[in-house]
Protein backbone atom coordinates (compact mmCIF):
# COMPACT_ATOMS: atom_id res chain seq x y z
CA UNK A 1 0.00 0.00 0.00
CA UNK A 2 2.78 2.37 0.96
CA UNK A 3 4.77 1.41 -2.14
CA UNK A 4 1.71 1.92 -4.33
CA UNK A 5 1.18 5.41 -2.90
CA UNK A 6 4.82 6.31 -3.50
CA UNK A 7 4.73 5.12 -7.12
CA UNK A 8 1.44 6.96 -7.69
CA UNK A 9 2.85 10.15 -6.19
CA UNK A 10 6.03 9.86 -8.27
CA UNK A 11 4.01 9.58 -11.48
CA UNK A 12 1.77 12.45 -10.38
CA UNK A 13 4.75 14.60 -9.43
CA UNK A 14 6.40 14.10 -12.82
CA UNK A 15 3.07 14.84 -14.56
CA UNK A 16 2.52 17.97 -12.46
CA UNK A 17 5.97 19.39 -13.09
CA UNK A 18 5.68 18.49 -16.78
CA UNK A 19 2.35 20.29 -17.05
CA UNK A 20 3.79 23.31 -15.25
CA UNK A 21 6.73 23.50 -17.64
CA UNK A 22 4.32 23.10 -20.56
CA UNK A 23 2.19 25.95 -19.19
CA UNK A 24 5.30 28.11 -18.97
CA UNK A 25 6.82 27.38 -22.37
CA UNK A 26 3.87 26.88 -24.72
CA UNK A 27 3.04 29.56 -27.29
CA UNK A 28 -0.73 29.13 -27.09
CA UNK A 29 -2.64 30.63 -24.17
CA UNK A 30 -5.39 28.00 -24.20
CA UNK A 31 -2.84 25.19 -23.85
CA UNK A 32 -1.43 27.02 -20.82
CA UNK A 33 -4.93 27.27 -19.28
CA UNK A 34 -5.58 23.56 -19.85
CA UNK A 35 -2.21 22.71 -18.31
CA UNK A 36 -3.08 24.76 -15.22
CA UNK A 37 -6.36 22.84 -14.93
CA UNK A 38 -4.45 19.56 -15.21
CA UNK A 39 -2.10 20.71 -12.45
CA UNK A 40 -5.10 21.31 -10.19
CA UNK A 41 -6.44 17.84 -10.99
CA UNK A 42 -3.09 16.19 -10.19
CA UNK A 43 -2.85 18.27 -7.02
CA UNK A 44 -6.21 16.90 -5.88
CA UNK A 45 -4.75 13.38 -6.18
CA UNK A 46 -1.80 14.62 -4.12
CA UNK A 47 -4.21 15.79 -1.43
CA UNK A 48 -6.02 12.45 -1.47
CA UNK A 49 -2.77 10.55 -0.88
CA UNK A 50 -1.83 13.06 1.84
CA UNK A 51 -4.98 11.97 3.77
CA UNK A 52 -7.02 15.13 3.27
CA UNK A 53 -10.14 14.22 1.26
CA UNK A 54 -11.87 17.52 2.09
CA UNK A 55 -9.15 19.54 0.40
CA UNK A 56 -9.06 17.12 -2.53
CA UNK A 57 -12.79 17.65 -3.15
CA UNK A 58 -12.46 21.42 -3.00
CA UNK A 59 -9.47 21.49 -5.32
CA UNK A 60 -11.17 19.21 -7.86
CA UNK A 61 -14.41 21.21 -7.84
CA UNK A 62 -12.96 24.72 -7.78
CA UNK A 63 -9.40 24.57 -9.10
CA UNK A 64 -9.91 22.09 -11.89
CA UNK A 65 -13.52 22.90 -12.79
CA UNK A 66 -14.54 26.48 -12.16
CA UNK A 67 -11.22 28.33 -12.58
CA UNK A 68 -10.43 26.65 -15.89
CA UNK A 69 -13.83 27.60 -17.19
CA UNK A 70 -13.43 31.17 -15.96
CA UNK A 71 -10.10 31.53 -17.80
CA UNK A 72 -11.71 30.32 -21.02
CA UNK A 73 -14.67 32.70 -20.70
CA UNK A 74 -12.35 35.69 -20.22
CA UNK A 75 -10.13 34.55 -23.10
CA UNK A 76 -13.14 34.27 -25.40
CA UNK A 77 -14.44 37.67 -24.31
CA UNK A 78 -11.12 39.35 -25.05
CA UNK A 79 -11.02 37.72 -28.45
CA UNK A 80 -14.57 38.96 -29.14
CA UNK A 81 -13.47 42.41 -28.02
CA UNK A 82 -10.51 42.38 -30.36
CA UNK A 83 -12.71 41.54 -33.33
CA UNK A 84 -14.94 44.53 -32.81
Amino acid sequence: MELFSIILLLVMGVATIGSAILALTTKKTDVAILAAGAISLFASIFFLVLASPDVAMTEAAIGAGLSTFLFFVILRKTEQNAEK
Binding site: L24, A32, S40, F46, E59, G63, F71
Partner: peptide, 28 residues
Protein backbone atom coordinates in the same frame (compact mmCIF):
# COMPACT_ATOMS: atom_id res chain seq x y z
CA UNK B 1 8.71 36.50 -17.33
CA UNK B 2 5.42 36.26 -19.25
CA UNK B 3 4.27 39.26 -21.22
CA UNK B 4 0.64 38.23 -21.68
CA UNK B 5 -1.57 39.22 -18.73
CA UNK B 6 -3.73 36.07 -18.85
CA UNK B 7 -0.58 33.92 -18.90
CA UNK B 8 0.63 35.78 -15.82
CA UNK B 9 -2.64 34.98 -14.03
CA UNK B 10 -2.31 31.29 -15.04
CA UNK B 11 1.17 31.32 -13.48
CA UNK B 12 -0.24 32.86 -10.31
CA UNK B 13 -2.78 30.06 -10.02
CA UNK B 14 0.04 27.49 -10.42
CA UNK B 15 1.89 29.27 -7.59
CA UNK B 16 -1.28 29.04 -5.49
CA UNK B 17 -1.56 25.27 -6.01
CA UNK B 18 2.09 24.82 -5.02
CA UNK B 19 1.62 26.72 -1.75
CA UNK B 20 -1.48 24.65 -0.94
CA UNK B 21 0.39 21.37 -1.51
CA UNK B 22 3.21 22.61 0.74
CA UNK B 23 0.87 23.54 3.63
CA UNK B 24 -1.06 20.27 3.47
CA UNK B 25 2.21 18.32 3.45
CA UNK B 26 3.37 20.06 6.62
CA UNK B 27 0.28 18.66 8.37
CA UNK B 28 0.73 15.13 7.03
Amino acid sequence: TNKNIIRMIVAFSIFDTGVNILIVTFGY
